[in-house]
Amino acid sequence: MAASLPLPNARPAIPWVTTVARLVLGGVLIAAGALKIGNPSDSVVAVKAYQLLPDSIAVPVGHVLPILEIVVGVLLVVGLLTRAAAVIAGLLMVAFVFGIAWAWANGLRIDCGCFGGGGQLGEGQEPTYLLDILRDFGLVLLAAWTVRFPPGRFALDGALGLGGDSADEEEDE
């Protein structure tokens, strides 16, 4: 409610911004993971398509990514272990940005595999690297915000007294 008022001091809005950041970031992660989790091999193929990791590492990475995205996404949405989850989410997004940029720089024609699918593109399909990078970079920013100002409103961390800075500040106020 406070956020909707044109306050000169924006501080009351901060936890709400965190909540929105958590929901967006967590929602995207859950969607991305859920679309991939049904078929671990698709995920492995998508990771291999980047030609960044040796096969022996690409296989376990392909297997663990979907579930990791879902668990981190759920933690963010419910606001549990917010800061740790946001750190992991941020690192994941940085890795994705790097991977996509790498594929782009090396002239690969692949689907980023972000939301299932992945691998090489067929004829007539064009990579969407720039969009993918911008989206993931935006998510990096949301993760950074959440790391800086956890846990936001409607967070289990707050209810359990696990909050980061802002929870302490709220108690002090």
């Binding site: 671990p40 376990p60 297997h63 579930i67 668990v71 933690l75």
Partner: peptide, 16 residues
């Protein structure tokens, strides 16, 4: 959370 990730990982690895 770590157990959930581990379990999912194990499941993915074991199905394939």
């Amino acid at each position: 959370a770590v157990a959930a990730v581990g379990l999912g990982w194990w499941y993915a690895a074991s199905t394939s």
